[in-house]
């Protein structure tokens, strides 16, 4: 099957790749572009481990085709920390031990960042429902929710 040529922007950088029409955006990120931060937990849109944003919208990259990235802007976990410094969400996740194994963490960070951009002052319930599409099997979510709330508070103060 012939491959499709795609030009896109990932974490602010332009990127080009060839992909099979059947390949998902997640396949492309991981296998063609070496961005293995997004994880495949299910491949069916049920776990959120592959979360990225597409033109600012939170999506499961396992449900998007690689070819759909043409001309779009994609943001992944690799782009969250602006430089040497971590993003407040990343710092708070470490500080609160909001990860045990850490496989869900990239997806949850991308999702939480998208939440705080829309709603800088979410309630606990709002955070819980926003993150309901991101499965974590290790933590029971308690420390994740606290880390997100704490990061939100810090970001509000800084703003």
């Amino acid at each position: 099957m012939s491959k499709i040529h795609v030009s896109t922007t990932i974490n602010g950088d332009t990127a080009e790749f060839l992909c099979d029409p059947r390949e998902t955006l997640l396949d492309v990120l991981r296998d063609r572009l070496g961005l293995t931060g997004a994880k495949e937990g299910c491949g069916t849109g049920d776990c959120g481990a592959c979360s990225v944003t597409l033109d600012g919208r939170l999506v499961c990259s396992c449900l998007v085709l690689g070819a759909e990235a043409e001309g779009r802007e994609i943001a992944t976990v690799e782009g969250i920390a602006p430089g040497e410094e971590l993003h407040p969400l990343q710092r708070k996740f470490i500080e609160h031990a909001a990860l045990q194994c850490g496989i869900c963490t990239p997806g949850i960070l991308v999702a939480a960042k998208a939440l705080l951009e829309k709603n800088p002052d979410p309630t606990e319930t709002e955070v819980r429902y926003w993150l309901a599409g991101n499965l974590c099997r290790c933590t029971g979510y308690d420390k994740i929710i606290r880390a997100v709330m704490d990061a939100a508070a810090e970001m509000r103060e800084a703003a």
Partner: peptide, 21 residues
């Protein structure tokens, strides 16, 4: 005490290499 975990940065930046990575 409750210090930060040593692999914390790797895990929150997507750098940590899991089985499929």
């Amino acid at each position: 005490t409750r210090p930060d975990r040593p692999d914390g940065t790797d895990k929150v930046t997507g750098r940590a290499r899991f089985g499929a990575d």
